[in-house]
């Protein structure tokens, strides 16, 4: 088991290097630092001096890969690639346009992101699995048919509508909770209720449909027939036999997103003014702050790879066939 996890971690390394090279190519080879400087400075202020100053301020004035001017080890280390890309492996993301340390900012913003994303994830999983179980239990009845229709309708609605509509109705018309904002400590719940609620609702359509398919696939398996032949009531057949087997693909399918919960949600956070990583990213995109976007891409990839490893581990935990072999 330990060897297995170690091997998975070892496999993750080349993938992270790939991500790193890809982002480097995207940010420094597609466009030269000069292009970026011109863009950032705006047409009016572009002078060779301004560009040079802009580059020097951010450390973009070095060569890309190999610094022939330097000697020894620093031919490799005193370059853009080493400074901006390789250092990300040790958690050094550099500074944002406003001069703040990105790593520290990320650390501070993970909390609020998680405060929204985690409850949304847990509650959403519970609601959708229950709903899917209900539809599968009453399969081929009117309840099932209309439930699926509802799901298709709900997944055809834009996520933006859920947020805008929900905010308008619940916070503005009914005035049940504040429209947006974030508080510290226990007071935070008033700000969390609405985004979590909307997050759960907007995920119902597609997830329910997917889980229902998984349940129905299990219903047609041979062991279900055996369970019925034992004379077990239908509820027991569902909860003891079908649910357990269906949870294997469902759980392992969702485990991969758990680490990504740290990243928060771009839309929800920007609409509700949550000071998390999602809104941080959006602000960076709007301000064209390349350093922050680069850092977020890298962190996203790291979290995703952790998710993959967790998925493999969760398989071994929930499926006895893998656990014992």
């Amino acid at each position: 088991m330990l060897a297995y996890i170690l091997r998975r971690l070892f496999y993750a390394l080349p993938i992270l290097i790939g991500v790193n090279l890809l982002t480097f190519a995207l940010f420094f080879i597609v466009n030269t630092p000069d292009d970026m400087a011109r863009m950032q400075l705006g047409v009016k202020r572009v002078t060779p001096e301004a560009i040079a100053h802009w580059k020097a301020e951010r450390g973009y004035d070095k060569p890309l890969f190999i610094n022939l001017a330097a000697s020894g080890l620093s031919t490799v280390t005193n370059t853009i690639f080493f400074d901006k890309s390789a250092r990300m492996f040790v958690g050094d993301f550099g500074r944002a346009e406003d001069g703040r340390d990105i790593a520290r900012e990320i650390g501070a913003r993970m909390g609020p992101s998680l405060a929204i994303a985690l409850p949304t994830f847990m509650l959403g999983l519970f609601v959708t699995v229950s709903f899917a179980l209900l539809l599968a239990f009453f399969r081929a009845t009117a309840l099932d048919v209309w439930g699926v229709v509802l799901c298709v309708a709900m997944m055809s609605i834009s996520g933006l509508f859920y947020i805008i509509g929900g905010q308008y109705l619940i916070a503005k018309v009914w005035k049940l909770v504040p429209i947006s904002g974030f508080g510290d400590g226990l007071d935070a719940w008033r700000f969390l209720v609405l985004p979590v609620f909307i997050g759960v609702i907007s995920g119902i359509g597609s997830s329910t449909r997917w889980y229902r398919t998984i349940f129905l696939e299990e219903v047609s398996k041979d062991y279900v027939r055996t369970a019925r032949a034992k004379g077990l009531p239908e509820t027991l057949v569902f909860f003891r036999h079908i649910l357990r087997n269906a949870m294997i693909p469902i759980l392992t399918g969702v485990v991969v997103v758990i680490p990504l919960l740290f990243m928060g949600s771009l839309l929800t956070e920007s609409f509700f003014g949550i000071p998390g990583l999602g809104s941080y990213t959006i602000d960076a995109i709007n301000a064209q702050d390349f350093a922050v976007v680069r850092a977020m891409v890298f962190i996203g990839a790291v979290l995703y790879i952790i998710g993959l490893i967790l998925t493999d581990i969760s398989y071994t935990l929930v499926d006895p066939r893998i656990r014992f072999s």
């Binding site: 991500v19 990504l260 990213t281 995109i285 977020m296 993959l308």
Partner: peptide, 18 residues
């Protein structure tokens, strides 16, 4: 492994510069 929105964001930003 790069979250979709972020990869798109990065690529679109670069395209804008171009």
């Amino acid at each position: 492994s790069i979250p979709g929105v972020l990869l798109i964001a990065a690529a679109v930003l670069m395209m804008q510069v171009v």
